[in-house]
Amino acid sequence: MKNAIIAFLAVLTLFSCKTAKLPIETESISLANLKGAWDWKKTTGGFAGVTITPETARYILHLEFKDDELLFFKNNEATRGYHFSLVKDKTIYSADSLYIIKPDNSENEIPLVVTKMVKDTIILADNVNDGFSSTYVKRKN
């Protein structure tokens, strides 16, 4: 009986872990239209399904795309960066290939999937189950 309960709980756990279904809506994605600074608006996801904003986090984030380099900033101070390739490949979000910001020679960085890019808004999602997706708006020059 104990083994049956454990097996039931294991199966229940496996079926309760779902991949988040994100709306896939992209315009033309290229290094040229990624280039520039992007201000963070919100992050959602994770195992608990949280939503974090600059107001709730009490800090600001932004990204800067420079040619093949992606830089991350917190409160206007650089925190990390890496060189990347923009590739179209399979992801956990769609049967169709999507654009992925794939870190070059970095084992510690999770590839970011471009799940939405319309006008001046981009949504980047971790290419892992229970990951996070973040919304950014491009700065006007």
Rank of each mutant, 00 (worst) to 15 (best):
N33R: 05
N33Q: 09
L34T: 12
K35H: 11
K35P: 06
G36R: 06
D39M: 00
D39F: 01
W40S: 03
W40I: 06
K41P: 01
K42I: 14
T44I: 15
T44V: 13
G46W: 08
G46C: 06
F47M: 10
A48N: 08
A48D: 09
A48L: 07
G49C: 01
G49D: 04
V50Q: 06
T51L: 05
T51E: 13
T51Q: 00
I52L: 08
T53Y: 07
P54Q: 05
E55A: 12
E55M: 11
E55C: 06
T56Q: 08
T56I: 15
A57C: 03
A57H: 09
R58H: 07
R58W: 12
R58S: 05
I60M: 02
L61I: 03
L61W: 13
L61Q: 12
H62G: 13
H62Y: 03
E64R: 07
E64L: 06
F65V: 13
F65H: 04
D68S: 09
D68N: 05
E69A: 04
E69V: 12
E69C: 08
L71V: 07
F72S: 04
F73T: 15
F73P: 00
F73S: 01
F73W: 01
F73D: 09
K74T: 14
N75V: 02
E77T: 02
E77V: 14
A78I: 14
T79K: 10
T79P: 15
R80D: 11
H83P: 01
H83T: 13
F84Y: 10
F84L: 02
F84I: 11
S85M: 09
L86W: 01
V87C: 13
K88I: 08
K88H: 14
K88F: 06
D89P: 08
D89Q: 10
K90T: 04
K90Y: 11
K90P: 01
K90E: 06
T91H: 10
T91Q: 05
T91C: 06
I92S: 03
Y93G: 00
Y93S: 04
S94I: 00
A95E: 13
A95S: 11
A95Q: 12
D96S: 07
S97H: 03
S97D: 07
S97V: 00
L98R: 15
L98K: 12
Y99W: 14
Y99G: 06
I100Q: 01
I100K: 02
I100R: 02
I100M: 00
I100W: 01
I101L: 00
P103A: 07
P103H: 04
D104I: 09
D104T: 05
D104L: 14
D104S: 06
N105Y: 10
S106G: 04
E107N: 12
N108V: 12
E109L: 09
I110Y: 03
I110D: 07
I110P: 05
P111R: 11
P111N: 13
P111Y: 05
L112P: 07
L112M: 11
V113S: 08
V114H: 07
T115R: 11
T115V: 14
T115H: 02
K116G: 08
K116R: 11
K116S: 12
K116M: 05
K116F: 12
M117H: 11
M117W: 09
V118L: 10
V118W: 14
V118Q: 14
V118M: 09
K119I: 15
K119C: 14
K119A: 15
D120V: 03
D120Y: 01
T121W: 04
I122G: 10
I122F: 00
I122Y: 00
